[in-house]
Write a protein that binds this DNA or RNA. Sequence first.
DNA 1: CTGTATCCTCCCCGATACTG
DNA 2: CAGTATCGGGGAGGATACAG
Lengths: 140, 140
Amino acid sequence: MEVTALADDARGDLFDPACPTRGLLDRLGSKWTSMAVKVLAGAAPAEVRFAELRRRMPGVSQKMLSTTLRGLVRDGLVDRRVEPTVPPRVHYRLTALGLSLEEPLSALRAWAEAHMAEIDRANHAAAAEQVTGADDSAVL
Amino acid sequence: MEVTALADDARGDLFDPACPTRGLLDRLGSKWTSMAVKVLAGAAPAEVRFAELRRRMPGVSQKMLSTTLRGLVRDGLVDRRVEPTVPPRVHYRLTALGLSLEEPLSALRAWAEAHMAEIDRANHAAAAEQVTGADDSAVL
DNA sequence: CTGTATCCTCCCCGATACTG
DNA sequence: CAGTATCGGGGAGGATACAG
């Protein structure tokens, strides 16, 4: 692996200071991050083990869960505690910073649950216009 | 181009109903979406023209702005109004749905502005541990 | 049990050029 | 002015195998 250890998980040196939101959304946008935060937040302040975390995130692979958690730990949003047994047990929990993120994030989740169906309908309507020859005057 | 017109902008038939948040974050995660919403929300209820929008989003290309806006229109978050002049003028503004998204989204922006620097520091600290041989006892 | 190492595929996004 | 068409690089992320 050599010197590549430096660039290991680095997602670039962040972003344009004028728009920190992009840096945050790049992270939350990665497929499993928000779900991991959700599960960890739901269990807080208790810890969650790797396998348990995986069970609560249907569809995630070992690799992606590992990668996701490493990113969160690196960002200081999650704490990682290793129980030095054989086999090892690894526990994760949100840091104070991670917990503080849960608040605005849950607001976004609430919006999603309330309005994503509407977005879904808008998409299907747009698709329908395509097949009907973009005849928008008759829609509805 | 043929029948591909159907699949044109379709980002899949959405997502697992159990997690509408993923569908939303997939959209907000795309590079220019959140910025476009921000600019449009800042101008609301006024409309913003394509070129003006582009000026307020430093670094965006014509193609990506066009693609981003098309996605937002398709999702029902943005309205598009064409002034049939020569050359044409096209105006964009958030729909009621788009405006409602701005609320939780601005909360996320506030969190980002308040805490991304901290995440930045955590990342640099993690990088530093790599070069020092993971000696975390001496950090700080 | 909790990871890491490879390989490989898909698609996001940027650059560039062209159109009405 | 407001787009669309095309090409190409690079990274996200899934499958699989292996390790401590």
